[in-house]
């Protein structure tokens, strides 16, 4: 690996440490305040709780029933990610490696799509999905989430595919591989870090997305955890029960953090250098 100089190490830790403190302190505040009562929070937000008020967590769990929607969220987000990543990898690969008429137009349409604020699409989408009779199903949310994430995903993946070495591909074609085989057997696996990176970004967006979930679903079979969190936040704000609100925040972070840290290693895993140079 790179020159791991011992000299700069403490300095590096200090600089990184400053930002770490900024993050940890905010999280710390969220955690300690999740054990306090509202009055205590306003008295002194930084103080440690005098007494661990676990009922905040009970209130948050029971009131929002966050975990009832957990499986819905997992299915919706999981399916979306699989479908999204595969079809966008396909499209991004073509847009990156092949020159054809209309290529620039497609790329511009992607950039255009990324700039559109999603809230404006709510009403037209609702009409369309209502006519297709798909409202209030998981499939409906999956369709919407996939479609809304397509521009961002393709855009990032184009960048990744542009940066991949071309020799591998050329070697494969000379060897007689069809384009399709070249992609699935070689380029797709090569781009795995990029795929996981973009998948995890999409995951975070979808995990916390509540507005579309609220509009397009009503029944418990399709409601997501993010919506439960939004409902919790709203109800706690109006009863000024911030203790339970912070408890809810902590509860929402846990599964997201676990899932992210599990896939983290795929994101950072190195590229197989051997195929090119060796």
């Amino acid at each position: 690996m790179k020159n791991k100089s011992k000299v700069g190490k403490p300095a590096a830790h200090i600089i990184l440490g400053i930002w770490s403190i900024l993050i940890l302190s905010i999280l710390w505040i969220a955690v300690i305040n999740s054990f306090k009562t509202s009055a205590e929070i306003y008295a002194n937000i930084l103080a440690l709780p005098s007494h661990l008020h676990f009922e905040n967590y009970r209130n948050a769990l029971i009131n929002s029933q966050l975990y009832r929607f957990f499986f819905n969220s997992v299915i919706i987000v999981g399916s979306t990610l699989v479908i999204l990543t595969v079809i966008c990898a396909m499209a991004a690969y073509v847009l990156s490696r092949f020159k054809f008429r209309g290529r620039q137009a497609l790329i511009t349409s992607i950039i255009f799509g990324m700039s559109v604020p999603e809230l404006l699409l709510i009403i037209p989408l609702y009409s369309m999905l209502s006519k297709m009779n798909l409202l209030d199903t998981k499939f409906c949310l999956i369709l919407i989430y996939v479609s809304l994430c397509i521009p961002f995903t393709i855009y990032v993946l184009i960048g990744h595919y542009n940066a991949l070495p071309n020799e591998v591909r050329e070697a494969a074609i000379v060897d007689g591989c069809s384009e399709s085989k070249t992609f699935w057997k070689i380029m797709f696996p090569l781009s795995k870090p990029g795929l996981f990176a973009v998948a995890s970004f999409n995951f975070v967006w979808m995990w916390n997305e509540y507005l579309l979930a609220m509009v397009f679903t009503t029944s418990k079979e399709s409601r997501t955890m993010a919506f439960g969190m939004y409902a919790l936040q709203n109800s706690m704000t109006f009863t000024i029960d911030y203790g339970a609100l912070f408890a809810g925040i902590v509860l929402m972070i846990v599964p997201a953090a676990i899932i992210f840290m599990t896939f983290h290693k795929y994101i950072i895993s190195g590229v197989t250098v051997g195929a090119i140079k060796g």
């Binding site: 709510i122 609702y126 009409s127 507005l211």
Partner: peptide, 16 residues
């Protein structure tokens, strides 16, 4: 939740 009118707007706009 408080944003229910967005849902109502969408439903009315969809015409059915």
């Amino acid at each position: 939740g408080r944003d229910v009118l967005i849902k109502l707007q969408s439903a009315i706009a969809s015409g059915s």
